[in-house]
């Protein structure tokens, strides 16, 4: 395997809620174009890890370096503009807004027109918007050829799986370098999960340079999409390696796979 330059380096990341240590000295490195799976039982700190990466939480200790830049002290919106996009475990779409609007907001940071263009030089703004909507339609069509036609419908009218796709499109619209997926298969049945796997495959092919960190409970998804797996327990990273290595790891089996293995 060739060694690609690392995009994200997390060292000793620690997050505390009052007296509770939610994340305890976590080290993770992600290379460019790599997909890393994150597993661990509920409450093991996976989502907290994402929240710290995206600036929603202020870490008590440790360092996050992204593209050679330390993220300490940056607000969430500034981190997003550097090229980290994410989805959420429970959908965070604006149901009253249109499908297009929900994705266009992802491109908000890259806009080239300002208040003067909105009001007086309207043509410039509308021209930019037309291009943006074309790109959004292209993204939507990757997952479901029917979606671009429904662009001006409210997101609340879409079925669950399409909403998840809209959320992934919103993250992709920002043209991020790192995509964080927080349990995309949550609340899906097996068929929908299979569709999701296909969607993630499309993302891979469409954007080969994109790095992805994916939190998942579904081991088939993890096995299918990730090149490397990190296992969390009680806020600590307990193991790291290929899926096969992690699946055979003693501590991971105890903490997490025990139940899964028993079921299999």
């Amino acid at each position: 395997m060739s060694v690609s330059p690392s995009l994200l380096e997390v060292a000793g990341l620690t997050v505390r809620f009052g007296g509770l240590v939610a994340l305890d000295g976590v080290d993770v490195v992600v290379a460019e174009g790599e997909t890393v799976g994150v597993i661990g039982p509920n409450g093991s700190g996976k989502t907290t890890f994402f929240n710290a990466l995206t600036g929603l939480l202020v870490p008590a200790a440790g360092e996050i370096v992204f593209l050679g830049r330390r993220l300490a002290g940056l607000e969430a919106h500034a981190i997003a503009r550097l090229g980290i996009a994410r989805t959420f475990q429970a959908s965070r779409l604006c149901l009253a807004l249109s499908v297009f609007d929900n994705i266009l907001i992802g491109m908000h940071a890259g806009r080239r027109t300002g208040v003067v263009d909105f009001v007086v030089r309207r043509g410039r703004f509308l021209g930019e918007m037309r291009t943006a909507i074309e790109r959004v339609s292209h993204l939507l069509a990757l997952f479901n050829g029917d979606l671009p036609r429904r662009g001006f419908e409210r997101v609340g009218q879409l079925p669950q799986i399409d909403r998840r796709r809209v959320e992934i499109c919103r993250a992709l619209a920002a043209e991020p370098k790192l995509l964080l997926l927080d349990e995309p298969s949550a609340g899906m049945n097996p068929e929908e999960t299979a569709e999701l796997m296909r969607d993630l495959q499309i993302v891979r092919e469409e954007m080969p340079g994109l790095s992805v960190i994916i939190i998942e409970h579904d081991m088939f998804v993890i096995e299918g999409v990730s090149q490397r797996v990190v296992a969390f327990n009680y806020g600590r990273k307990i193991a790291e390696g290929s899926f096969a290595e992690i699946a055979g790891h003693e501590e991971v089996r105890e903490a997490y796979l025990g139940k899964e293995a028993a079921r299999a």
Binding site: T54, G55, L56, E75, A76, H77, A78, A80, R81, A85, R86, F88, R92, L93, C94, L95, A96, L97, D101, L104, I105, G106, H108, A109, R111, T113, V115, F118, F125, R170, A174
Partner: peptide, 23 residues
Amino acid sequence: SWLGLALNTLRDDEIAARCCGVS
């Protein structure tokens, strides 16, 4: 416009808006 869109998004979901780069 971008402004109305950003304001609607932060009205409906501040966290989603911040993660999309809206201050």
